[in-house]
Design a protein around this nucleic acid. Sequence first.
DNA 1: GATATTTTGTTGACAATGTCAACTTAATTA
DNA 2: TAATTAAGTTGACATTGTCAACAAAATATC
Lengths: 141, 141
Amino acid sequence: MDNHSISNTIFSIAHSYRLTMRSALKASELGLNSMHVKCLSYIHNSEACTANDIVQFLGRDKAQIARLVKEMISNNWLTKTANPEDKRSQFLSLTEEGQALAALIADTQSKVSIKMKQNLSDEELKEFSRIAGIISNNLKS
Amino acid sequence: MDNHSISNTIFSIAHSYRLTMRSALKASELGLNSMHVKCLSYIHNSEACTANDIVQFLGRDKAQIARLVKEMISNNWLTKTANPEDKRSQFLSLTEEGQALAALIADTQSKVSIKMKQNLSDEELKEFSRIAGIISNNLKS
DNA sequence: GATATTTTGTTGACAATGTCAACTTAATTA
DNA sequence: TAATTAAGTTGACATTGTCAACAAAATATC
């Protein structure tokens, strides 16, 4: 390996993770793309969520999120309800179908997570996370 | 952190790495996008390289690579020369300008790599790579 | 309280990236 | 020799990401 092995390893894991999630989720059969997955997860895990919350959290363009939300509403995964505190924005919440998808996503994420952790002890995982945290900070500084 | 912390950590590092490389390279000023960087690096590190080698290595669509190569030739970064062993394909090689870009990319990669490794001992880095390798294999199996 | 500024969300236009299928030419297999 | 496979090119199109203009509402400033 060359001196870029860390980044290569990281990219390789990220790529494999994406592929594994995609196939484990049967994402294409469900009509889910990666942005759908991120949005549904986020909405699922948050109390009251607006489009702008998603924009902030995912760091995406608001135009992109507006179109994504529109699409997910027409898919009957989400509904909008008035935000009594701010008439410009609206709360996004999952329909039953959206809930089911979000639950499936969460379930698949844990399965993939378990798969990733195979053959590793708790100490190794802890050490990995610790070092990864340092690397992450190194890059951000 | 939740039970998806490994994947979150990985994605966070990958994202930071991309941003850091991009700004360290001054990629936009040079007219480089991420596929350019990957292709130039690959050609730089390989003996004799054809479009199909890039397709295989990067796992991309051959149409995408054909257009990328065409663009890089028109940028005067690459040239094509006949492959005496197979008249269907042609060898891609870097022009002087392409060499300079590839060298700059390699140099920037080492700098970012050094930055990533700050505050970590050789043992920690070795351990990180070892565990990352296991995770990577877990996902592939 | 009226006015100016900022924020949320929508839309149009478009750039960048990725994908699929048809096709040509050359190499390989049967 | 004929059929199949492989390398590369091109057209068409889907997906994703970005920028700017805009309306409506909230907030700040005077």
